[in-house]
């Protein structure tokens, strides 16, 4: 029996039994299909379970994440205050806003994977001192593809995935379909353990240990993604 953790997505775990622990899941699909909302729900579950979460955000900053989650009545303020969220944002760096960094709030740049990797490690070191089971979110790899040569991004993601898994984490990475060449997409898929596809109507588990391909309808409601 593979140990699993709750995804936080209503109805999804009934289909899959949860996300296999200590694996990396790719959540991908066309734009505006709910990939970031998937991440918010995954984070919300971390809050509910008291898990630490490493969050690499490329398109928004921490305060925007907080606001976007508030739209669904999900509150992470206390969670942030308790230093359970570890953010690296590459969004504020690129607009030239130089705010003070802390262990829980680091700034990097989308075109500087060396720096991103070094900051991920610094945070994982801190997380690892506290727990072996944590969650990780990378939303979205699409931005990394936009700023770097695609093959470099694959190298970076492989290293990232290895680090998260070695430290004991269970994570998700989002990707917008069609933003990189098919060949690169294939390499991306080969780098993760599980693959979930969202097309705005149907959620498909393309790959997951111990499961056959499964699909179900989904909707984005006031409670986020609801499957079935």
């Amino acid at each position: 029996m593979i140990p699993k953790i709750a995804s936080g997505i209503a109805g999804l775990d009934e289909l899959t039994g949860g996300l296999p622990e200590n694996t990396m899941t790719l959540v991908y699909g066309p734009p505006k299909t709910g990939k970031s909302i998937f991440c918010y729900q995954f984070l919300r579950q971390a809050v509910a379970d008291g898990d630490l979460c490493s969050y690499l955000m490329t398109d928004y900053i921490q305060s925007q994440l907080e606001q976007q989650m508030m739209v669904f009545d999900w509150f992470i303020h206390d969670y942030i205050q308790d230093k359970k969220l570890y953010v690296i944002d590459t969004a504020s760096g690129s607009v030239g806003a130089m705010q003070k960094e802390t262990k829980n709030m680091m700034i990097s740049s989308p075109q500087n994977p060396t720096d991103i990797a070094s900051k991920v490690i610094q945070q994982l070191q801190d997380i690892y001192q506290q727990t072996r089971a944590f969650r990780s979110i990378l939303d979205s790899s699409t931005t990394l593809f936009a700023f770097n040569s695609p093959i470099l991004v694959i190298r970076v993601l492989k290293s990232y995935i290895m680090r998260i898994k070695m430290a004991g984490g269970t994570g998700i990475i989002t990707y917008t379909e069609g933003t990189a060449e098919t060949e690169i997409e294939t390499m991306l898929k080969a780098s993760v353990d599980n693959i979930i596809y969202l097309d705005s109507e149907t959620i498909t588990i393309e790959a997951m240990a111990g499961l056959r391909q499964e699909s179900a309808g989904y909707q984005i409601t006031d409670n986020g993604i609801v499957v079935g």
């Binding site: 994977p113 060396t114 720096d115 990797a117 070094s118 991920v120 490690i121 970076v156 290293s159 680090r163």
Partner: peptide, 9 residues
């Protein structure tokens, strides 16, 4: 030559 994760800058 830096291994990923080690700051070289």
């Amino acid at each position: 030559t830096a291994m990923p994760g080690v700051a070289s800058e």
